[in-house]
């Protein structure tokens, strides 16, 4: 189907130009990484004892939100939004923890696979409802967040269950070098393995196309409804990974949704994904999650009330958007 002609006979790409163009396009993400580096240095300065333990803690603490942010990024890129991510994470988390409790490693592996499929199905249901009912996505996913959270509580009324030990080993602890948390590696690898092939495929292009300009996408022959459903299904898949991460990092399943839905929206915006759709990637939001977490840590080190971190998060979120809006209108005036 994708009989895409290879760039045979195309003039050799000028590598410098390619790098420049990549840099231009990823300027937001690069800026975020720079900010992350600065923050790490700053953290080391204000808290000289910050080291292996801090980094490891950081790795574990960002894992579930990192996946939630990626999940949200996928659907926002396709021009939608999903307010049921936290609930899907809770549901997949309790199911995994309940099924794995006291079972063999092999069974645990099967559970992981099953939960990932479940995530796809949950997301596809969300997407199908959005497409078929034509009710605004905010309303549909808000309503479905009740439904998924309700199912989570039906599976387990209280936190409990257990994660397979191998699953916990997968994310807790260092990866070779004590400075590299396994969690970060898992986050990057899982996201890369799922997202990069998709982003490179026709489907990935279609996701961006639908989010960028639905009419142009339609005229270019993109099936709008099907693409949207795929976007929501992928979001469900990443939410399921997030749910597994939650179980792995806390060793239990928690039926009550965490703050992940709303924080994922914040991370997506900070990560350079346009809420209007079509712009951004999944790694920006991941870095944004790290930045937010370090800011929170730093405020603790500076013996600020940790709650100011929340305030800071809100102010950063609003500030970034206002800045964007001012820049946009200035550009339009020119």
């Amino acid at each position: 189907m994708s009989a895409v002609t290879a760039p045979v006979g195309a003039p050799p790409a000028n590598p410098a130009r390619t790098v420049m163009s990549w840099a231009q396009r990823s300027s937001w993400a690069i800026g975020l990484v720079g900010l992350l580096a600065i923050l790490l240095v700053f953290t080391k300065i204000i808290q000289p004892s910050y080291g292996v333990a801090g980094i490891q803690g950081l790795g574990i603490s960002i894992l579930p939100l990192g996946f939630a942010a990626v999940a949200q990024a996928v659907v926002v890129i396709a021009g939608g939004i999903d307010l049921s991510i936290g609930s899907m994470m809770a549901l997949t988390s309790v199911i995994a923890a309940t099924l794995m409790d006291g079972q063999s490693a092999e069974f645990g592996l099967a559970v992981v696979a099953g939960v990932l499929v479940l995530g796809l199905v949950l997301g596809a249901i969300n997407g199908a409802l959005v497409v078929v009912t034509r009710v605004p996505d905010i309303v549909v996913t808000l309503a479905m967040s009740f439904v998924w959270a309700g199912f989570a509580l039906l599976v387990r009324a209280a936190p409990g269950g257990a994660a397979s030990p191998w699953l916990m080993n997968l994310v807790i602890g260092p990866f070779g070098n004590p400075w590299i948390p396994k969690a970060a590696i898992v986050l990057v690898i899982v996201v890369a393995v799922i997202w990069i092939p998709i982003a490179r495929s026709r489907m990935g292009l279609s996701l961006y196309a639908v989010g960028s300009n639905q009419l142009a996408a339609f005229r270019s022959g993109v099936p709008i409804g099907r693409t949207k459903i795929v976007a929501y299904a992928l979001t469900g898949l990443f939410a399921a990974v997030g749910g597994l991460a939650l179980t792995a990092s806390t060793s239990i399943g928690t039926p009550v949704p965490g703050p992940y839905t709303l924080e994922s929206v914040a991370a997506v915006v900070l990560g350079g994904v346009s809420l209007a759709g079509g712009r951004g990637g999944v790694f920006g939001p991941v870095v944004a999650v790290m930045v937010l977490q370090i800011i929170q840590n730093d405020m603790t080190f500076l013996s600020f009330d940790p709650n100011f971190a929340l305030v800071a998060q809100g102010v950063i979120l609003i500030g970034v958007l206002i800045l964007g809006s001012v820049l946009e209108s200035r550009r339009a005036r020119r």
């Binding site: 709303l262 929206v265 709650n307 971190a309 929340l310 305030v311 102010v315 979120l317 958007l321």
Partner: peptide, 13 residues
């Protein structure tokens, strides 16, 4: 959606 979300973070904090 985002503005009120951000404001809720600020107020909660």
């Amino acid at each position: 959606l985002i503005m009120t979300l951000g404001m809720s973070f600020v107020v909660l904090g």
